[in-house]
Design a protein around this nucleic acid. Structure first.
Length: 649
DNA sequence: GCGCACATAAACACTA
DNA sequence: TTAGTGTTTATGTGCG
């Protein structure tokens, strides 16, 4: 089919046999570090030794983990060294089925969280000792290490969880993840290249010798412990879940408690499908799912490896998050430290003091913090939908009309930056964040078509463009695809052309221009709006619509002084995906798109309509001219998109 | 209240 | 038969 599910689920059958050895080294290191840090291994096994031995005896390792986990919950093993920061025992011992990491974050202070995690680690290490005693295993170092790999894995999971939680806490403090920290991570998860994830899962799904190796594994035959395992397994899994919280806050381990597993939805179960990475088994109900979970995703090498990969995913996300945070910081610094920038035009972007949209914004973002897309084209749309603009979950939870389906949001689609600019500047953002692009389907389709080398696309190519460019369109495919088809058929500006290899869609620029409301430029109201604070949120729908889909008009440019150097510079940045056209800035600084609009409509003969076009309101030019603080018009591709050269005068 | 633009949903036909 | 494609209609929303 297509890439539509790329960001949602990595669907790979666990069949290939690629090893995951390359993935283990990292976790090993983490595990060893964690184990040592607790200083709780006195006289026991060093984490490093664990690792070696575990590689030699994976089966033992598994069993070891089972025992370890089972003992973890036993009452006799609560003797844990207290961390410097005391954590309520009830909290520390609370299973994740009872409280989610996010809830923990809310309940506990960061130091407490830290302490709690340390306690868990210490608990685990304590279990190593206990398990040894229980089984009276005269373990040579080599054997003792068998479980260490998974132990290290678990410990690294803890570490990862710590990092995630700390990072989320930081984000919360910054107001970036105000309501749903997990959503931010989920969004970031999408940020990871689907192919990377796919590859990772491919590598893992066929963990070498997952079952075969177990059968062939020599050494300890722990089959006698199978009964133990049977009873211990749930505990093991239960313990495991504590250590395996995904960045989005979900837990990756089945809840064995029948009460819980039936009482509430399972994080690994949704829409009748098993959400275990690489698995999309259909399960009619929770019971069936639990059964499936027990059968297919038991604590074995494969599952462990998959967890390990998930951990890699998390790490990647951490890296990505760090990068994005750094970028955000730089952007914030840029926006807030700039001296003597024209307030009236800068303020409204994110800190506007009026307008309903602003109010919404302030509800989402703390004052002073820019919204994810930091151009003037900062999407307004998502802000209406939920607390977090980059939150896919929130977006979904809020973006339903009639209980289902995306929210209707006509006005929010309107926005002041032309599509090319917005896409150019926030290409990565839209690619990764589950944010609906603030443009109409028609404009997006047009953009997709015009961006193509041949200025024509098949329907499927349009689909692909949507999914490639926007994380948002990697879900709810039926809805937006239907909308795309609907728009293609509905709007005259989209011309279907029978090609050798099928039908392709082209853009009739004339029709596209025709469909727009005329006479916007020069409107006193508009100018007033623009000048009086650039109130994006206060602009009425028509203006916003016009702003969103029109580009700079000559008249508007005439209203504006020559664009600042900064804004002019912006004209040439961020055209990674809209590079098919090039804008030229003439010597006096005015933007003069020298490219013929035929570039955008070569397939269809375009009849120039200077009158109509020159009347278009192009407030962005105004913005471009006066707001040198805003990373605005890199755009101006729309400028030429919508603006035939000859209309300059 | 009306018209417009838009989004969404759905039915239907056609075709590979 | 099915999925994809394309058309059309209906409905709701937000705005001027």
């Amino acid at each position: 089919m297509m890439v539509e599910s790329a960001s949602e689920t990595i669907r790979t059958t666990p069949s290939n046999q690629n090893g995951v050895s390359s993935l283990t080294s990292q976790s090993d290191g983490g595990g060893g570090r964690e184990g040592g840090s607790n200083g709780d291994t006195n006289g026991e096994i060093s984490p490093v030794d664990f690792l070696h031995l575990q590689q030699q005896h994976p089966r033992w390792a598994r069993q070891f983990l089972l025992q370890q986990a089972s003992g973890l919950n036993s009452p006799g093993n609560t003797e844990v060294k207290q961390s410097p920061v005391q954590v309520p025992v009830s909290m520390a011992m609370m299973s994740p089925q009872m409280i989610t990491p996010q809830q923990m974050q809310q309940i506990l202070s960061p130091p407490q969280l830290q302490a709690l995690l340390q306690q868990q680690q210490a608990l685990m290490l304590q279990q190593v000792k206990c398990t040894r005693r229980q089984h009276n295993l005269d373990l040579v170092p080599g054997r003792l290490q068998l479980g260490s790999k998974q132990l290290a894995f678990q410990q690294q999971l803890i570490q990862m969880q710590q990092l995630q939680q700390q990072h989320i806490l930081n984000l919360q403090r910054q107001g970036l993840v105000p309501m749903q920290p997990t959503a931010a991570m989920q969004s970031l998860q999408q940020a990871m290249c689907p192919s990377d994830l796919q590859q990772l899962w491919k590598e893992v799904s066929g963990v070498p010798s997952s079952e075969e190796a177990l059968k062939q594994a020599e050494g300890l035959d722990l089959s006698t412990n199978s009964s133990n395992s049977t009873s211990a397994y749930p505990k093991a899994a239960s313990t495991h879940i504590q250590l395996h919280n995904l960045p989005n806050g979900q837990s990756h381990t089945p809840k064995r408690d029948s009460h819980e597993e039936h009482a509430s939805s399972h994080p690994l179960y949704g829409h009748g499908e098993c959400k275990w990475p690489g698995c999309e088994a259909l399960c009619e109900d929770m019971g069936q799912f639990i059964k499936h979970l027990n059968n297919e995703h038991a604590l074995d090498d494969r599952s462990t490896a998959q967890c390990r990969v998930q951990m890699q995913v998390v790490q990647q996300l951490e890296i990505q998050l760090a990068k994005e945070s750094e970028r955000l910081q730089a952007m914030m610094t840029h926006l807030h430290m700039r001296p003597s920038e024209p307030k009236p035009f800068n303020q409204p972007l994110n800190l506007a003091s009026s307008g309903s949209l602003l109010k919404r914004d302030s509800e989402v973002y703390p004052e002073g913090l820019p919204h994810p897309p930091t151009s003037a084209a900062t999407p307004i749309t998502p802000l209406r939908q939920g607390p977090s603009v980059i939150s896919s979950s929130s977006l979904h939870s809020h973006s339903h009309t009639h209980g289902v389906g995306p929210i209707r949001r006509r006005n929010s689609d309107k926005y002041c930056t032309p599509i090319a600019s917005e896409l150019a500047q926030n290409c990565e953002f839209y690619k990764n964040a589950d944010v609906r692009p603030p443009f109409t389907y028609a404009s997006l389709i047009r953009h997709a078509i015009l961006e193509s080398p041949e200025r024509q696309l098949t329907l499927n190519e349009i689909y692909n463009w949507f999914t490639r460019k926007f994380a948002y369109f990697r879900r709810n495919t039926a809805t937006w695809k239907n909308a795309v088809r609907h728009n293609l058929s509905l709007h005259k500006c989209f011309v279907r052309v029978e090609n050798v290899k099928g039908a392709v869609w082209t853009v009739d620029e004339v029709e596209y221009q025709k469909r727009r409301p005329p006479k916007m430029t020069g409107s006193p109201t508009l100018v007033k709006n623009m000048i009086s604070g650039l109130g994006f949120g206060s602009l009425n729908a028509s203006y916003q619509a016009a702003l969103a889909e029109r580009s700079l008009s000559p008249l508007n440019r005439a209203l504006v002084t020559p664009p600042s150097a900064a804004s002019l510079n912006m004209l040439h940045v961020g055209h990674d995906d809209v590079s098919s056209t090039v804008e030229q800035v003439n010597s006096n600084g005015s933007c003069s798109p020298t490219l013929s609009p035929h570039q955008y409509s070569h397939q269809v003969h375009v009849k120039e309509e200077p009158t109509e076009l020159e009347e278009d309101g192009r407030p962005m030019s105004l913005l471009a001219g006066v707001t040198h603080s805003l990373p605005l018009p890199s755009d101006e591709r729309d400028l030429e998109e919508d603006l035939p050269t000859e209309e300059l005068e």
